[in-house]
Design a protein around this nucleic acid. Structure first.
Lengths: 199, 199, 199, 199
DNA sequence: AGCTAACCGAGACGGTACGTCCGGTCTTGTC
DNA sequence: GACAAGACCGGACGTACCGTCTCGGTTAGCT
């Protein structure tokens, strides 16, 4: 039983909200990010501009919300990584999946847009970490802790550092387009990480 | 004796060019990057807008050129890293210097602006790699090769990968503000890298 | 009982419209006509440029509208000329009034601007004739018709021609500054006209 | 053997001068007058902009000079009107010739441009009167004086006024496009003038 | 069923900056 | 030493969006 203040306009609200986020996502994947404008989002969503500004303070916020909403829908609540007992194999799986994601043009544009925004806005960066990166990292760290118990990872390893050594090279290579993102590359990152933090 | 290609408009050209780049740098460090406009750069440089558009196709290009010019001036030609024979110490020095750079607010804003641009423009990214990242990486790889000869690094190590494992975690932590950039953190990255690629 | 067509944005619309036209008039009287710019009009009116471009296609159109609006306000609906029964006296009155108008620096600039525009744009010329010159000429022709009935003017005179012979010399002398505009000159034009088209 | 002041750059000077004036004339007849720019004139004439600004202070001056030059070439020195002894016939000839000129699209554009400039610049207007209108009017007045001697025109008629009554209605009708310019119209102006100023 | 008030779409508004064009000046190298 | 070529500073052009502000027209829930 909700105890909202006004009458229940929530249905309309929700519909327009979803339309806005969907429009934002569509535009980010279609166009140059520079060309994504609040007016275009509003037009695409069939919504007045004011309806957007009522909810979000800036274009950046809408776009970030749109991208974060993507993952909120995806996961029921918690993310879990596979745990076959073979850490190398499990990490390799995750890394290869990440490589594939980055190869998808839509995803590529989406994540570049997201990074453009959070690089220049500390508040959005915090929201990104809390809502998106945080839960994912937590899931990965859970897998790493399991590996520590199984003696496949140094028990005193700083798990944040482990994740960074594993993931940051891949991400940066993608962001700066400084090299090819191949399966072999993903594997060699897993290897390096295990050498650095193995038991 | 210079043997330049074009006619010698060079004096005026060069003066206005430098004024534009300096103005761009100044504005990027002073203001929100969003607020850096071509008009503001022109006004600050005491230059007509057309003089900017004659040379660069967009604000992005000016800003990137401005930042790249910084380092072009800095190095006479070649960058060399210290080589004391102690790889761990030398890398630690470089990494701690990087941490300090990122702590400088001006530098922070400059590099964020640069990354915003190159993340969304493959051509600018290529220019960045060629003019700025490339030479630096080459210098670092020279030091690593020296270490390989000295038996301090696996002789079959992929040096690009080594550099990524060393540097990308630091860079990403800075870009996403996902953790503190401390001297200890720099050292632990050197340690991890040496464990991963040591002999 | 108003039965307007559109929605009632009329208040804002009308306020900005009047501000624009007033600003245009003010600038035309103050500055060289060449120096009247859309930006200056917008600034003076406290209005965005787009608000001007939304309504008029060019600076010319704004200026013409501004000047036409002047007379639209002035006359309730119909213009009537004095009819004392003495044609010579009545025409003399009108011509001397015209001479006085042309002697007013503000009016001079306004009318020069108007003529600059309509000389080079047939559409604006048509609008000028319909809205401004037409009604005035109609009023004058009414007076001439009355004179024809009174036997003071040839009954077969082409009234348009009569008006031209009366008025064009004055206008052209003013436009080309080819001679002084005096009361005596006005009178001699009336005399010539009456000689040419008298009974 | 000319004894010019400098060395014999006079040939080049004259050639570029003619090229500039010809280009100005060509552009005025081809394009909207608004689109005639100093840059376009220079390019068309194969001349640097500075060569134009060295000689004339503004675009207006160039255009006026270009048009005035037209008639300077035309008349050897003096203009003379036909004098058959029949004033009505002679004036009719001149007026009908004027109607034909105004019907020529090139001439129309040229004269509109000229009028645009002189309406807003008293100095140019004076130059126009002195160089172009003056001599023509003088020729016409010579014919009128001959008519006065022959008793075809009131001996005390103000010849300037006669010319205005004759010519201004035609000119204004053309300038404001307020009516058709026909042969009949030209004749009726001659008739009216002769009625007004006949003996 | 009718009322009432929040909320919506639409889009005009005052602004800022865009990227282009041209005016008028200044510089360079050629003829 | 005048010239063509054209870069330069300045500033207006007309357009695109920004974020704010009405405006009527739904669309609830409440009477």
């Amino acid at each position: 039983m909700s105890k909202e203040k006004g009458p229940d306009h929530s249905r309309r609200k929700e519909r327009s909200r979803q339309a806005i986020l969907a429009a934002a996502r569509a535009l980010v994947t279609e166009e140059t990010y520079e060309k994504v404008t609040v007016e275009a989002i509003a037009a695409r969503a069939g919504v007045g501009k004011q309806t957007i500004y009522r909810r979000w303070p800036s274009k950046s916020a809408v776009v970030v919300a749109a991208l974060l909403a993507l993952s909120e829908d995806a996961d029921g609540q918690s993310v879990t990584l596979p745990d076959t007992g073979d850490l190398r194999a499990d990490l390799g799986l995750v890394m290869r999946a990440t490589v594939e994601e980055f190869a998808d043009p839509s995803f590529d544009k989406l994540i570049r847009a997201l990074n453009t925004e959070i690089a220049n806005d500390a508040a959005l960066a915090a929201e990104y970490r809390e809502k998106l990166a945080g839960p994912l990292d937590e899931a990965k760290k859970a897998r790493l802790r399991s590996a520590q118990k199984a003696g496949q990872l140094a028990s005193d390893a700083d798990l944040d550092l482990v994740l960074e050594v594993l993931y940051a090279p891949l991400f940066l290579r993608w962001l700066h387009r400084s090299g090819p993102l191949t399966t072999a590359y993903a594997d060699s990152l897993v290897d390096a990480t295990l050498r650095a933090f193995g038991p």
